[in-house]
Design a protein around this nucleic acid. Structure first.
Lengths: 159, 159
DNA sequence: AAGATGAGTTCCAAAAAAGAACCTGCCAAG
DNA sequence: CTTGGCAGGTTCTTTTTTGGAACTCATCTT
């Protein structure tokens, strides 16, 4: 399969990854959540080749994850800000960070702590079911065709 | 920066992405959560080139995300199963799926529904703070150097 | 007039992916 | 004892994508 076809798969994960699933995009979004907005700063923090960065920012802007906002005229300069669609990736980023904290940190612990300002504690984000309020374990989740399932889509199998 | 250097960055997100952050890996893991275990079935469901699949399965096995488990001797055949480390990626996958459900589904709705068997309802996974029990919004999360921060690491900035 | 700045483009070499063909160890049928 | 099949790879060639560096362009600053 070609990468471009991924967005047409009958799977929300594949469709999501068709936007954020390549080598650099989630790192760009991570930096957005850290307040990075400008081309040069993305470049400096990521160490990414400039034309790859330009292409990723364009793709994210076209996808509605980022918007370009002018911060000066003459010469016109624009910065890249997360939209609501982009901010909704926050749980994905934090879950990934927590996985990295658990499995990829050195002996001293994770290099960065996230603080939940509402309670002032170090954040441990927990996935709970909004219906029953219980923590969600992988073995309790099964899948079935949803309303947008096409006839040609194979029924997904469970774990 | 080279991709291989990513795992040494002082950032859990970068380190996590050094394992799962390329074009195919999260799709392989998605299929693991759907019960796929064998080379040929990954190939059939993903439409991935065989040598790319072989390389990804090896990388995930080396990283401890998958284990090879023999299911027959003579000829020896092995299948790939998620370890605990791999199963702990479940929240990442589901959060990504929900984002895709919200933003990438067609008019009819998402192609797949996940059901929480504990309560029998369609799963809406919600990220809550395990300290205070409140839903976590991006704007309430700030960052600061953690115990494993190295001197050379720049202090991360907040949103 | 001579830099400096921010945000890109362009060019080339090197690395990674797509697609197809080939290999291996074993079993089963003719 | 040869033929075919199967699971699970590996090899080969062509196309895409990166990495890295240099160049452009419109505007400030000195």
């Amino acid at each position: 399969m070609r990468w471009e076809d991924l967005g047409r798969e009958p799977c929300s994960i594949a469709r999501a990854l068709s936007i954020v699933g390549d080598r650099w995009t989630l790192l760009v979004i991570r930096d957005c959540f850290s307040g990075v907005r400008r081309f040069e700063e993305f470049e400096a923090r990521l160490g990414i080749a400039r034309h790859v960065l330009a292409e990723r920012l364009k793709k994210l802007t076209d996808a509605g994850v980022l918007v370009r906002v002018a911060y000066q005229e003459r010469p016109r300069r624009e910065e890249y800000c997360l939209t609501e669609k982009g901010r909704d990736l926050h749980p994905v980023i934090v879950m990934l960070a927590q996985w990295g904290d658990r499995y990829m940190a050195g002996e001293d612990g994770p290099p960065v702590e996230r603080v939940h300002e509402l309670c002032g504690k170090v954040l441990q984000m927990q996935p709970i079911c909004s219906e029953c309020g219980e923590p969600v374990a992988a073995r309790d989740v099964t899948m079935r065709p949803g309303p947008g399932a096409e006839a040609r889509a194979l029924p997904p199998r469970n774990v």
